[in-house]
Simulated assay, not measured.
Amino acid sequence: MNKKVYLFAIASFVVGAAELILGGILDLIADALRVPLSKAGLLISIFSLVYAVSAPVVLTATAKVERKKVYMWSLVVFLLSNILAAASMNYTMLFLSRILAAASGSSIIILSTTLAARIVKPEYQGRAIGVVFMGISASLVLGIPLGIYIGNNLGWREVFAVIAILTGIIIAVMWFTMDRMQPTVPLPLKQQLKAVRGSKMVAIHLTTLFVLAGHLTLYAYFTPFLQETFGLSSNMVMLVYGIFGIAAVAGGGLGGVISDKWNPAGAVVAVISLFLISMAVLPLAVNLPFAAFLVLMIVWSALSWAVSAVQNNLIIHSSPENSEILISTNSAITHLGISIGSYVGGLVIQGSSVLYNGWAGSIFVLLGLICSLFAVTRQDSISSQAESSLKA
């Protein structure tokens, strides 16, 4: 397999870290900029919201532009966004930097995935895409604990400075090693959207929206949750995030195994049901010994990533001919859910206590479970419906 695939994985790692890292240093940013924690949480919401809507727009607008040029410009904008974040003297500057980082980062992730598949032989395309997503997964395992460590020992600005330095290195390496690649002809955005019109696919996308919103209602504020409930030090919080990340990556693999062992419909319902139970019980577990809480958290974390695996497998099973388009729109819905969840989580904290975020999130997950039950009982052929829509 072409070794350059690993460069795309590294770029994806850096972008993933920039997105996820904020959850671990949110309290530091709120204190430094003298804003409520709920307002600081909007920095997560806006990143996910912009990420969700910008990638199809940007990539469609640049569809006829040579891909290395688009990739390099995306990296440059991402670099500038993190420099702006590190230099931010107020909340507004940091908010703007998150918008720029999300718009450019979404393009980098999607291009890393598609270009990695293009530079290898057909029999290695799946493996190449897997390597890129390993980079994203690694950002969860390493990015947040590293961000907490740097933030608490050097400062939150230095977190973005490190990301900017890593991005600069990637730009230099990519400039000299990445080959020019002409664009492929993409489907128009209007036709891509037509593929999600079936009631089953709408329900699948709504499932993703509600489950991710529910998860982020608590996860976006997990640092203050741990500090308020257990009084953990910053080093202990960093350790907990590391455990969470390892469990999450393992959960993604578990979701794939479950999807292969069971039928996709049964796997989705089972995983979301267990995820709902784990999330609803988590706030009660603060009264248990910390070791018992960790065990439940590991289950919650693993299931949070297993959901994505089983959902994508259900999409592929439901509409194999249009799976790439539909997984792309499902990814956009994912980030919309993240944006909604982090916003609602801030409202819960503002109105009551972070202790209740888990239960507020459980309401979203319950709605997701209802949507999944509706989706798996639909017998309409999404494959033929989307295919006829695309031909229209």
Rank of each mutant, 00 (worst) to 15 (best):
Q192L: 03
A220G: 06
A128Q: 09
L49A: 08
V77P: 01
R180S: 14
V57C: 00
Y124V: 00
Y149T: 08
S328L: 10
V268C: 10
T114A: 13
I44Q: 02
T223W: 02
L369D: 04
L218F: 10
A30Q: 04
K4Y: 09
I349N: 07
G252T: 03
V131M: 13
S74W: 10
F13D: 03
F275Q: 09
G361Y: 10
V50R: 05
A63C: 08
V50Q: 03
F230D: 04
S308K: 01
L146R: 06
L373A: 01
V196T: 15
R127C: 00
L20F: 13
V281R: 12
Y149H: 11
L115F: 02
V257M: 10
L79C: 08
E321Q: 15
A40S: 05
S384V: 13
L111Y: 03
A302M: 13
A52H: 06
T184C: 02
T60M: 06
L212W: 10
L326Y: 04
A164D: 09
E19Q: 09
L37G: 03
I169Y: 06
H215A: 03
F133A: 00
F293H: 14
A40W: 08
V14P: 01
V70M: 08
M89R: 14
S74E: 12
V65H: 07
G16Y: 06
S342K: 05
P56G: 09
A117L: 01
V120E: 03
S352R: 11
Y356L: 15
